[in-house]
Simulated assay, not measured.
Amino acid sequence: MSAIYKTEAGAREIQRRYREHLRAWPIPAEELRIPTREGETVVIACGPRDAPPLVLLHGSGSNATAWRGDITTIARHFRAYAVDMVGEPGLSAPSRPALDSEAVALWLDDVLAGLGMTSTAMVGMSLGGWTALDYAIRRPDRVSRLALLCPGGIGRQRYGWMLKAVLPRLLGRHDLRRNASLVTGLSAPELAPVLDDVVATFTHFKPRTERLPVFTDQQLASLPMPVLVLVGDRDVMFDSAETARRVRDRIPHGTAHVLPDMGHAVVGQVDRVLEFLRD
């Protein structure tokens, strides 16, 4: 059994749901399989082949289908490559390269080489935001623009939410849906299907639990490309105010927006992101 799943049956259930979402993908797409030093990496590609490239990196406990709600809009302007990050509940290898090393960037080197890219814009959310930022710092000539949604590695990582999530469990009132809503900030009725997916995944999946490395002021100041960061003011995972402050103070071409009444899951921002990417 893969170490990233609790049971083999759970792994099969996640794969089944993933395939179900792919069948409902709203526009024509290709499923690409790219060999990398961390194992096979799956990429869902769509949009005009002659359009500018855009790499999409999802968050922890997710996969490429995290972009399905926005992909129709994105693919009007870009050749979009939604990457299934390794070690996450998608179709890529279960390998988890060390975050405190160059291993993640080397994996992305292989992905981009397999896609035939020398430079691209990137959009990343949460762990995917950390991954895109790490890559831009290590490979600044390969990233033209960077849009980050609730990224890790800039503001302080919070753990107070864990007490709120764990205490009911210790008292015999474990409610995975309540905990998922607490972490993501998703509560609106129209977002219920998204929350359903989160609950279904974490019923069977074991996420990475290590603290994300925080980028230094010097590393942030070294970024030459335009950077857009969007965070929610109710994010229980990362300190949004600190994230926004460091982006504005340290990244030469950095812009940050703190979104009111929004948690860790930054949703409904595709138009703002596309305006930035196409500027």
Rank of each mutant, 00 (worst) to 15 (best):
230 L>R: 04
212 L>P: 12
211 R>N: 14
230 L>K: 03
216 T>R: 06
203 T>Y: 05
231 V>F: 09
234 R>W: 15
210 E>G: 09
226 P>M: 01
201 T>A: 08
238 F>P: 15
225 M>K: 15
219 Q>V: 10
243 T>G: 06
242 E>Y: 08
238 F>D: 14
241 A>Y: 08
222 S>D: 14
215 F>N: 01
206 K>V: 03
233 D>M: 13
231 V>H: 11
230 L>G: 10
201 T>R: 15
236 V>Q: 13
204 H>T: 02
231 V>D: 04
222 S>I: 03
221 A>N: 04
238 F>C: 15
208 R>Q: 04
208 R>Y: 06
202 F>E: 04
213 P>N: 13
229 V>D: 06
231 V>A: 09
213 P>C: 12
216 T>S: 09
219 Q>I: 08
230 L>S: 07
224 P>F: 02
235 D>H: 10
223 L>C: 04
232 G>V: 11
237 M>F: 08
236 V>W: 13
207 P>W: 12
229 V>P: 05
232 G>K: 06
214 V>L: 09
215 F>I: 05
237 M>H: 07
225 M>Y: 07
206 K>A: 00
213 P>V: 12
201 T>L: 09
209 T>G: 14
229 V>H: 01
213 P>A: 11
217 D>P: 01
210 E>Y: 14
240 S>M: 10
212 L>R: 13
212 L>H: 12
219 Q>P: 10
223 L>S: 04
232 G>C: 07
236 V>C: 14
243 T>V: 07
237 M>A: 05
209 T>R: 15
215 F>G: 01
242 E>G: 10
235 D>G: 15
228 L>V: 05
219 Q>M: 11
230 L>V: 10
202 F>V: 01
211 R>E: 11
214 V>Q: 03
217 D>R: 01
211 R>K: 10
234 R>M: 13
215 F>W: 08
224 P>V: 08
205 F>P: 08
234 R>S: 15
216 T>F: 03
206 K>F: 05
220 L>I: 01
217 D>V: 02
237 M>D: 07
214 V>I: 07
209 T>N: 14
225 M>H: 13
228 L>A: 04
228 L>I: 00
213 P>F: 13
225 M>D: 11
204 H>D: 05
220 L>C: 05
240 S>H: 08
235 D>M: 11
215 F>H: 04
223 L>G: 06
202 F>Y: 00
230 L>Y: 11
200 A>D: 15
229 V>A: 06
231 V>C: 08
233 D>C: 11
221 A>K: 03
223 L>R: 03
237 M>C: 04
206 K>G: 00
206 K>L: 01
218 Q>S: 03
204 H>Q: 05
212 L>W: 14
211 R>T: 12
203 T>G: 02
203 T>V: 06
241 A>F: 07
208 R>L: 04
209 T>D: 13
226 P>D: 00
237 M>I: 04
220 L>H: 01
236 V>H: 14
210 E>Q: 13
239 D>H: 10
230 L>P: 10
241 A>Q: 08
221 A>L: 03
226 P>R: 02
216 T>I: 00
201 T>E: 09
233 D>E: 11
202 F>M: 00
209 T>E: 13
234 R>G: 14
226 P>K: 03
206 K>R: 07
209 T>S: 15
241 A>C: 12
200 A>L: 14
213 P>Y: 09
215 F>T: 04
226 P>F: 05
203 T>A: 07
217 D>N: 01
217 D>E: 00
222 S>N: 12
204 H>E: 04
223 L>V: 10
214 V>G: 07
237 M>K: 02
233 D>Q: 11
